[in-house]
């Protein structure tokens, strides 16, 4: 369970990224965060694992109170919170397997990481993660030689290798074409269902949010302006969040196809 209590984020340049956010996200929930560009979606998601330190309020993840000042505590927190990025953020020059093993860092002694000699059980976990996202056959290929959708799955596998309690995804499908976007979203949803991982996803596309999420959070100018189950996130409500009428760009047009 993740609880935000009166969370404020002020960036070093004085810009207020979040103001007075109060949220409670239950274990195993699949939450979509929607809002216009610059609304503070990324800021919200990054406060959870301390990539953006909050400046006031209380944030708890599970039973841990997040302290953005303590590096060691943050590392421990981050090992339990996986993150997926819009631009995949793989090391493109090394193999897929090594990319996935980056997820094992927190549980690997530094000397093992330095030499690249991972334990057999870590490798097993990495393989299982790759199997879960269905690209185990690419394990020894360079990440650069994979397509965008495959790279994002590697990123998901990297997160799974962490054995996380929470997955944060910052626009995970924004740089993918519509059918691939649906595939990756389905993977995420399936993993969330199978493993009961709390999942928070930033979205640009309303229909993706509606198709996969349990709950929708709407943001505007650093504040939470809507919070409710997906059924309540009707067009009118979202237009309120966006402060403009919905356009065709807000939905992914192509229909998902069966694999």
């Amino acid at each position: 369970m993740i609880t935000f209590e009166n969370i404020d984020v002020v960036y070093p340049n004085g810009f207020k990224g979040l103001s007075n956010v109060n949220l409670q996200i239950n274990k195993g929930e699949f939450v979509a965060i929607v809002g216009l560009s610059g609304a503070g979606k990324s800021t919200l998601i990054r406060t959870v694992n301390g990539l953006v330190p909050f400046t006031s309020g209380t944030l708890t993840v599970g039973d841990v109170v997040v302290d953005p000042r303590s590096k060691a505590k943050l590392r421990r927190l981050r090992s339990r919170v996986g993150m997926i990025f819009q631009s995949f953020n793989l090391v493109t020059r090394v193999s897929v397997l090594n990319n996935v093993l980056v997820g094992r860092s927190a549980d690997t002694p530094t000397w093992r990481s330095l030499l690249g000699w991972y334990r057999a059980e870590d490798k097993e976990l990495a393989f299982q993660s790759l199997e879960r996202v269905g690209i185990v056959d690419k394990a020894y290929m360079r990440a650069a030689s994979l397509s965008g959708g495959q790279q994002q799955r590697v990123a998901i596998a990297r997160v799974l290798a962490q054995d996380p309690e929470v997955i944060l995804a910052d626009e995970p499908v924004a740089s993918l074409d519509p059918p691939t976007a649906h595939k990756v979203m389905r993977d995420l949803r399936r993993i969330q269902q199978e493993l009961g991982i709390t999942t928070i996803v930033n979205m640009h596309h309303l229909d993706l949010a509606r198709s996969y999420a349990d709950r929708v959070i709407g943001m505007r100018a650093g504040e939470v302006v809507f919070d409710g189950p997906v059924e309540e996130a009707t067009d009118e409500v979202i237009e309120q969040v966006y402060q403009r009428s919905l356009t065709a760009e807000d939905i992914v047009t192509a229909e998902a196809t069966q694999e």
């Binding site: 699949f30 649906h182 979203m185 389905r186 949803r189 399936r190 269902q193 199978e194 009961g196 993706l208 198709s211 996969y212 999420a213 349990d214 997906v230 229909e255 998902a256 196809t257 069966q258």
Partner: peptide, 17 residues
């Protein structure tokens, strides 16, 4: 763990098996 109306997106009936 499957909820009655699992919101798993279009074209996703039995993904687990």
């Amino acid at each position: 763990m499957s909820t009655p109306n699992l919101n798993a997106g279009p074209g996703s009936t039995s993904q687990t098996k």
